[in-house]
Design a protein around this nucleic acid. Structure first.
Lengths: 201, 201
DNA sequence: TTCATTAAACCGACTGTTCAGTCTATTATA
DNA sequence: TATAATAGACTGAACAGTCGGTTTAATGAA
């Protein structure tokens, strides 16, 4: 019991270090993409040696996957925390756009895209990435279906609307490289305005 | 006069070879992105040696820039050829979406995005790329303004709508990696449906 | 028509750099 | 003291670009 407890407190928790490394590295992947982010970059931004990074992660790819998983889960978790504040699907769609923009300080979607097309990866990794990418899709789907059920939205094809909205949010993120964040936030709001004008009853 | 004409016909036109190499290489950049496309790949798909490629292009970067320029110009030229067939801004928007999808057999936008973020390039090259990227924006702008002037569209903010549509088309292209082309074409049409429902009078 | 010459076009081995990952030694901690 | 955690030099592979050599095609002269 006592020795077990000691074991758990042996050093700074390994999981914490892994998370710290991954979060620190997010900025690099977001700004440079996957392949242009070197291990030297990663060591530098984390203030750790090569050996130290490799003690915690088997490869660069593993850091990337770990980060994407972490980022996706946290993004969805934090959405879950705030979505209750909104009563209508309309409000939720605006809020989701805002939530999406919140992550645009360091967007990973471009790095994900590059990774999946440019790297030679196993089918297993590809499938895993695809699952991760599609996880947030359920949120969009829920909002749209809810809007239809509650009579806010026309009985449109929810599947199609879902992909349009996802594509739109994804596509607008490209302007991240040329526009200020508050400009972007406004643009996302305008985009949702537009979509809603089309689907609202 | 006679010698001048002979000079031009010395061998297969150099410009033709450059175009051929660039077009052959498009598929690689589209499928793999910029950095994951190696010079070996490029030699292979062109059935030419290293020396031969470097005789025509100074660098991999120059091939890429040349191709983007070529592709953008051809895309816009072919749009100019067909736009006269459409009478309304509404029709034009659908046609433009279709035209966009036509180029989705080998989309270069992802490679462009990767190149601009991941490669260390001069400010001059960056500016040049940005100009190229923004060239087609004028087409979108014209259609939207025309729609407003002709009374087809509400007097919305054309600037904002322009970016929304561009972002949308760009973002939907990500599904290129997971959906069939005809599915994609349908999705683009649905997207334009949605937008139009919002902006049509 | 043939041949010699010349320059364009092409070839592919080579080069130096970059890079992800390895591994031995060292340090830190319990 | 033993083990976890870290350091950083090293390694082999990959890569874009170089460069000396070869081939090709056009041209003009005989």
């Amino acid at each position: 019991m006592e020795s077990f407890s000691t074991e758990l407190r042996r050093r700074k928790n390994v999981q914490e270090i892994k998370r710290e490394i991954a979060w620190n590295t997010k900025e690099l992947f977001a700004q440079k993409g996957y392949s242009a982010t070197s291990m030297d970059d990663i060591c530098s931004i984390n203030n750790r040696s090569r050996g130290s990074i490799y003690y915690h992660f088997k490869s660069k790819e593993e850091i990337f996957l770990y980060l994407i998983k972490l980022n996706t889960q946290e993004w969805m978790d934090s959405w879950r925390k705030i979505e209750g504040k909104y009563k209508t699907a309309t409000e939720k769609l605006y809020a989701l756009a805002d939530h999406y923009v919140d992550d645009l300080t360091n967007p990973l979607n471009h790095a994900i895209n590059e990774f999946m097309t440019g790297q030679v990866v196993s089918q297993q990794i590809l499938d895993e990435m695809l699952t991760l990418i599609e996880m947030p899709y359920t949120l969009y789907e829920q909002i749209i279906k809810e809007g239809i059920e509650r009579g806010e939205f026309k009985p449109t094809n929810p599947e199609s609307v879902k992909y349009v909205v996802i594509g739109l949010f994804n596509g607008l993120s490209t302007f991240y490289f040329t526009k200020e964040l508050d400009e972007l936030r406004r643009l996302y709001k305008d985009a949702v305005d537009l979509i809603l004008q089309g689907i609202q009853k």
